[in-house]
Design a protein around this nucleic acid. Sequence first.
DNA 1: GATGAATGAGTGTTCATTCAT
DNA 2: AATGAATGAACACTCATTCAT
Lengths: 200, 200, 200, 200
Amino acid sequence: MGNDEQSETHAEIMEATYRALCEHGYASLTMQNIADELEKSKGLLHYHFDSKEELLIAFIDYLLSEFEQDIASIEGPPDKKLDEFIERFVVVADAGDRQALHLALLELRAQSPFNDRFREHLARSDTIVRDTVAEIVRDGITQGVFRADAEPEVVAQLVLASMDGARTRGLTIGDETYPAAVSEALNKYVIDDILVKTNE
Amino acid sequence: MGNDEQSETHAEIMEATYRALCEHGYASLTMQNIADELEKSKGLLHYHFDSKEELLIAFIDYLLSEFEQDIASIEGPPDKKLDEFIERFVVVADAGDRQALHLALLELRAQSPFNDRFREHLARSDTIVRDTVAEIVRDGITQGVFRADAEPEVVAQLVLASMDGARTRGLTIGDETYPAAVSEALNKYVIDDILVKTNE
Amino acid sequence: MGNDEQSETHAEIMEATYRALCEHGYASLTMQNIADELEKSKGLLHYHFDSKEELLIAFIDYLLSEFEQDIASIEGPPDKKLDEFIERFVVVADAGDRQALHLALLELRAQSPFNDRFREHLARSDTIVRDTVAEIVRDGITQGVFRADAEPEVVAQLVLASMDGARTRGLTIGDETYPAAVSEALNKYVIDDILVKTNE
Amino acid sequence: MGNDEQSETHAEIMEATYRALCEHGYASLTMQNIADELEKSKGLLHYHFDSKEELLIAFIDYLLSEFEQDIASIEGPPDKKLDEFIERFVVVADAGDRQALHLALLELRAQSPFNDRFREHLARSDTIVRDTVAEIVRDGITQGVFRADAEPEVVAQLVLASMDGARTRGLTIGDETYPAAVSEALNKYVIDDILVKTNE
DNA sequence: GATGAATGAGTGTTCATTCAT
DNA sequence: AATGAATGAACACTCATTCAT
């Protein structure tokens, strides 16, 4: 059976933390909030995690591994993968839920300058995601769908930054169309530029 | 303009709040922190503001008006103004301080989904800033330095989003070069595209 | 005015701590107990002391300084002073109160192996008290009331140890006559031995 | 005698309790501490004892019976037995361990004013030990090694009190030589006095 | 016998807020 | 305007105890 036992309650706590974080926000998140979402006692949380910080570190890892799995599952030719990647970052469909996920991440990020461990765990994932995008661009160049002078690392940074910022600003003004609008702009002003035009 | 009496202590409290926020972060910000920075008592804060929230709302306005004044002070031809705008957003020189300002803003933004008043005040400013950038682009088109098919609103959104995201990701991984790198990418992949090429 | 301000509330907290300690014992002593005795809120205790430990350290100092003042006030010729010292240690009269004081001290002592700061503060006082007793014996030898071969330090140790132990055992079996009995034994088997016999 | 089944696990729990008590002290002693020392689960402790208090009562009995057996095993002529008794109370050799035992006892004693059952169990033992010492003195008088005017009960009280107090003060100031010093003083100022001098 | 999950009451501590001065 | 004392609710965390397995 292995040590998959970590899964049962551990996973439920992570999900409860997710819901609690979405509902109350990081600054107001309490162990009681999480316990309420879990419909278990506060004590149980401390039975499984030494402290709130420990629980949140575990939560960061949970959140990021979910996210990493998600983007790793993207298939297809490089240009389609890049589109799909942006699409998933933006999320038109299940707006509510994934928006909440990115908000949760944003809040944790906003805390990272004050918490070394948060920063370390978040940074690791940031690098992975950026490398993934850069790799897509690199594959695209190799396969001839992206122009040879496109810089994979730079494009990756710009794509990620603009999508991140779009979400942040979307949250700020409560305008859910913001990410989609930036996604379009990104396609028009950036992606289009690096695409090899077949008939021009 | 208005009751200038507001100026003296009020301004000092805003500055103290700024320092306290930079040092402790939103989630750990206490009235005592602010009072300590002010070198006055906690009670005084409540004499001037009915509650912590009220003080923070006032702080958002203070922060944004500072920011709005800053970008309003940019002079020169549209393409230079856009460069300068990005430059100030990025800040190469006084990294420490302005970085802190943007972090403070980010934290407040991360809270806005949980606080209607935060959101309203932040949204107002967001719109102003975006309109300012769009106006610069519009002027640039009129003056013939930007291509006629550039969309002012869309470019403004993309510029702001990518700069915002760059800072956020810079904070996440504690990499101060991130915003500068994205700034360059922005110039190369976006601004360059909409510039009217004089001799080509 | 001076910094005697420490006196007002500080003293009341010390007294409340004393009463709470007597009533509940160290192991069950809570900040709430102390607050209840003080008839003030728990928060106030933390306004005056950073932590429970800090409060207890202050309490040790308070207790010991009271005690040191008490024994320093003993007057008269050396042999009478020694008697009076033992008498006060034993206390026949106001049994209840002083017994409680010594119990409080005993509890704190029992904790000292687990708390460096407790130990340091208690040790300082222990030394002072022992030196005081030794000094009495030394004076007695000089003045010819104690035999020249009496060892001041050794006698002081024996006197203090037996009185301390008497109280401890008195507490153990709830027998209030124990200290008095040991006091007598001490006089008969120790003090008598070192007294210079005038006509024998 | 009785249900010998008690022996196996029961004894192991007692020993674990002893170690846990030595390491953490009474005030910080938890069922988890004991379970850790036992290398078994907390639940098991409650299987064997209805409550923590019940376990501690059993522990007092265990501790005292060990102690009583120890002093009962002393052999030889009365004056040697008295010396040996003091020696064992003091313990020069295995300082660490027996010191811990007496500390454990002291802590439990310090609790006895707040716990009737503790007090009763401790008092019973106190009486037994005191009677044992008094009996030694009485035997000594009968056998002519102690002076006829020595009062067995009084001497026993004084010996026990001073040794107890010596240990307490030794713990207080972290001075391990204290008990030995008092032991010497006891011999010189008390035991010597009641010894029948053969050539004088 | 023995465990691990789970609970709930209680702990020290924090903090926005109030108020007399 | 300004303070320091004081409060009360809430917080993270602890722990003896229970119970299904």
